[in-house]
Design a protein around this nucleic acid. Structure first.
Length: 263
DNA sequence: ACATTAACCTGTTGGC
DNA sequence: TGCCAACAGGTTAATG
């Protein structure tokens, strides 16, 4: 599914949309428009203008408009961004491998004949004008060890649930969280504030490594744990059956041997 | 203030 | 072969 890594791919492909005159907008799916955003407001804000910059905070893609407006795009778990008929990502875990234009929920047509479309089968993504960027924590790609310690590794909530809390650190999804904790040898159910200095440093190190690797290898489904993330799957490190639990409302796989509870 | 839970969406999968 | 329940997870609202 699209996590921060995939949204970074989308951001890069959206750079091809910068500086082109916006001719028209298709925003027929009212469900897909978030907050008080309406199709009329999108038309007013975008038509005749151009995008000037493509930014990303966590899983939110923000396209700055030449008139000062900001367009926020979210992709849920099955959304893709297609610019001029080319998708930057071939494979999306848990999404349909078909590619049906009927799933276009939002389309920007450019005066030169090209377009940018948000294609989302399950409609969990969305479009918002002037999204609240302050609601998001520091992006996972650039968060510092001290920021992680102060904002993320606190409190009694499960460590994994904290990593998924976009207000604390933005961009980590279920697969990045499971892979990172698996590599760091940390139990996802540990209390977020219970890590000692060494464990915190280990977590930061692995988070950075996982993000860099996923970005280089093609997405958040390229982890070493991924092929074992199913019922009965075995830990690739030491062969024991993985523990399958629900933590933070999400299916969580971990190794009972090298990610033991409360060390 | 903080933590937890459920609901939203729908294509795909697997059991009967 | 067809039917249907279960499943996937990012986000948010509601509840404790």
């Amino acid at each position: 599914m699209p996590e921060g890594v995939e949204i970074e791919y989308y951001r890069r492909s959206s750079e091809a949309a910068l500086g082109r005159e916006i001719a028209s907008i298709e925003a027929d799916d009212a469900w897909f428009l978030k907050g008080d955003t309406t199709a009329e407001a999108l038309v007013d804000a975008l038509e005749g203008e151009q995008f000037s910059e493509a930014r990303r905070i966590g899983k939110l893609l923000i396209l700055d408009v030449s008139n000062g407006a900001r367009l926020g795009l979210r992709f849920g778990m099955t959304g893709r961004l297609i610019v001029d008929d080319s998708a930057s990502i071939e494979y999306l875990e848990y999404s349909s491998q078909r590619n049906d234009p009927a799933w276009d929920r939002f389309v920007v047509h450019f005066a030169d004949g090209g377009d940018m479309r948000l294609r989302d089968p399950r409609r969990l993504g969305g479009v918002a004008l002037d999204p609240d960027e302050s609601a998001l924590g520091v992006d996972a790609f650039v968060i510092t060890p001290s920021q992680l310690r102060d904002r993320v590794l606190v409190g009694t909530v499960a460590l994994k649930a904290r990593l998924l809390d976009q207000a604390r650190v933005a961009g980590i999804g279920n697969l990045i969280a499971d892979e990172t904790l698996w590599r760091a040898g940390l139990d996802p159910a540990r209390q977020a504030g219970s890590l000692d200095k060494g464990e915190s440093e280990k977590l930061v190190r692995h988070l950075r490594k996982v993000l860099a690797e996923f970005l280089e290898n093609g997405g958040s489904h390229t982890g070493r744990l991924q092929e074992s993330r199913h019922r009965g799957g075995q830990c690739p490190k030491d062969g024991v059956e993985l523990l399958r639990r629900e933590i933070g409302g999400r299916t969580t796989f971990s190794c009972p041997r090298h990610q033991p509870p409360s060390r």
